[in-house]
Simulated assay, not measured.
Amino acid sequence: MMAPSAQEPSAEEAAAKGPERPRRRRADAVRNRERVLAAAKAVFSAGGTEASLEAVARQAGVGIGTLYRHFPTREALYEAVYRREVEQLGELAEALKGEPDPVEALRRWLHSNVAFVATKKGMAAALAIAAHGKTDLAAFSYERLTTAVGSLLARAAAEGRIRADVGAEDILRALIAMCYMNDQPGWQASVLRLVDVFVDGLRVPPRG
């Protein structure tokens, strides 16, 4: 049997290298998708519904064809950004359970929600289109966010740090009201101050 030449890999080498390229392509695709989502969040937050997908592709450093392979429509991209933000808020709540001060953990989570609302404001019209007929999108958001803030509230109340008569829905309604009643430039800084006042108002005064 003729030995393989120096230029030709052996069968064993070919078998070993075979899966490498597909794996690399899959890893590249995952990275590109995450870059597009991160860029879309920034672009949509700044430019609203008129922000172009070309601007998202430029921000992500990918070609427009790559963007369309992952997200064939503007609505599909908006929905993916929205779901990603909600998931990250859920993950943040889990991480904040380890914070020593439960009230500050709640404050930090609410601050992060202000940035989420800024993104959502920029996508409001397209999200309405994306969500039309998709009750699962609203249900997903409601369940994930109420569970997240509910866990932080329960811990703070159990330790006697905040009032126990305020629920997750109360917190989210108050946050939404603060965010959507402020549309002027610099509204986020104003809302963050209001959030701080709101959280301080939830505290149980120390017994003297």
Results as ranks from 00 to 15, higher is better:
L194G: 03
R24T: 09
V191M: 00
G18D: 15
E85H: 09
G150R: 10
A38C: 03
P22S: 11
G150V: 06
L96H: 02
E50H: 07
V62C: 06
V62H: 04
L53H: 14
P9A: 09
R25A: 09
A164T: 09
C179L: 04
Q59H: 08
A16W: 10
R23P: 14
P185W: 02
P100W: 04
E85K: 13
A40Q: 07
V149Q: 02
H111T: 02
N32Q: 11
G98A: 15
R83V: 11
N113S: 10
D170N: 11
G90R: 09
M181H: 10
H111E: 03
L127M: 07
G90W: 07
Q88C: 09
M178E: 01
K97Y: 07
D101H: 02
P206T: 15
A27H: 11
R155T: 11
R35I: 08
L89W: 05
M181T: 14
G61T: 11
A15G: 05
E20F: 10
A177H: 13
L53A: 10
G150Y: 03
D136V: 07
L92I: 02
E20Q: 14
A115Y: 05
A131L: 06
E8S: 11
A125T: 14
G61D: 12
L145I: 07
T119W: 01
G201M: 03
Q188Y: 01
A93N: 04
R74Y: 13
I171K: 00
R163V: 14
G48Q: 09
K121I: 02
V197N: 05
R193S: 03
T146W: 07
V36L: 14
P205A: 05
S190V: 10
A55S: 13
M1W: 11
R84C: 12
A80F: 05
A128Y: 03
T73N: 13
A93L: 04
A124F: 04
Q7L: 06
P206K: 15
R26I: 14
L37W: 02
A3K: 09
F71R: 07
H111D: 02
V36C: 12
G122Q: 04
F116M: 05
F140S: 13
S112C: 03
V204Q: 12
M123L: 11
R83W: 07
D165I: 06
R161W: 05
E79G: 07
R193A: 06
V195A: 00
A38Y: 01
K97A: 07
K121H: 04
T66C: 11
V199M: 00
M2A: 14
L106G: 01
M123R: 03
L77V: 10
R33W: 03
V56P: 05
R21F: 15
A189W: 00
R144P: 01
P9D: 07
